[in-house]
Design a protein around this nucleic acid. Structure first.
Lengths: 123, 123
DNA sequence: CGCTTGGTTCGGCGTATGTCAATATAGAAA
DNA sequence: TTTCTATATTGACATACGCCGAACCAAGCG
């Protein structure tokens, strides 16, 4: 599972496909395919703990944070790890081990893409 | 359930709290309270069917659509109704009965608020 | 090597969620 | 009123999800 081979369209670590995705939600009705791509990103942010973890990483210096810096969200450490994994699988975060610690960082392009989805029709 | 009394912070129809909510996710770590408020909105859009329904309403003329216009998303009629209810409870949609038909419309302020959450730190 | 610290994975448990068929309600129409 | 159409609600079911403790892996240190 944790082989380090080069894999196309995958993040440096593992499982974190980065896609451009979809027009604004208000532009035209989403197709099933578009919804299937975009929904998991919203879903990933749809849990309070994950939202806090994501915000903690995103607001951290350099858009990057060690797990140890953001683990204080009121759940056990395994649960934190589980949620970070979900965020990574949704393509919102990437992870990198540096020595003893593991650092998570936001995927800026995905954040921007989600922002555009919620764009209003030019007022 | 469908009493028509004036209720503070509640939508005209029922259960649809409209809140301004939270700074950008990247500004500072979300508090538990902020996460508890914002997460349900993302959660509501975290299902492909709901995302399509929401997009269908949002992209419809006048940001409003009859249920009959958007029900073709591949699930049964009760399921459509169920998802629309969820979107309403999350404060993303409001509903209004006009004669035989029920019209759903987007809550523009909430859409804008979610967009701001995903704002990047001024590049 | 063994020990300690940081983090992930596993197994299980209780609850939430998505779905449908069946039924109920709201209006319009006959 | 009876009937028909449009939508909502109920009840049941299978699956997904969030959570924890226990066990496990990875890296540094004696």
């Amino acid at each position: 599972m944790s082989n380090t081979q080069a894999m196309p369209q995958l993040d440096a670590d593992d499982g974190a496909v980065v896609v451009p995705c979809c027009p604004p939600l208000t532009e035209r009705p989403f197709t099933a395919a578009e919804a299937g791509t975009a929904a998991p990103m919203f879903k990933a942010l749809g849990d309070p703990i994950r939202l806090r973890l994501f915000s903690a990483v995103a607001s951290h210096e350099g858009g990057e944070a060690c797990v140890c810096d953001i683990s204080d969200v009121g759940v056990s450490q395994p649960t934190v790890s589980h949620h970070l994994k979900k965020l990574k699988e949704a393509g919102l975060l990437t992870s990198q081990r540096r020595g003893t610690w593991v650092y998570y960082r936001v995927e800026p392009s995905v954040l921007a893409a989600m922002g555009k989805l919620l764009t209003m029709p030019a007022a």
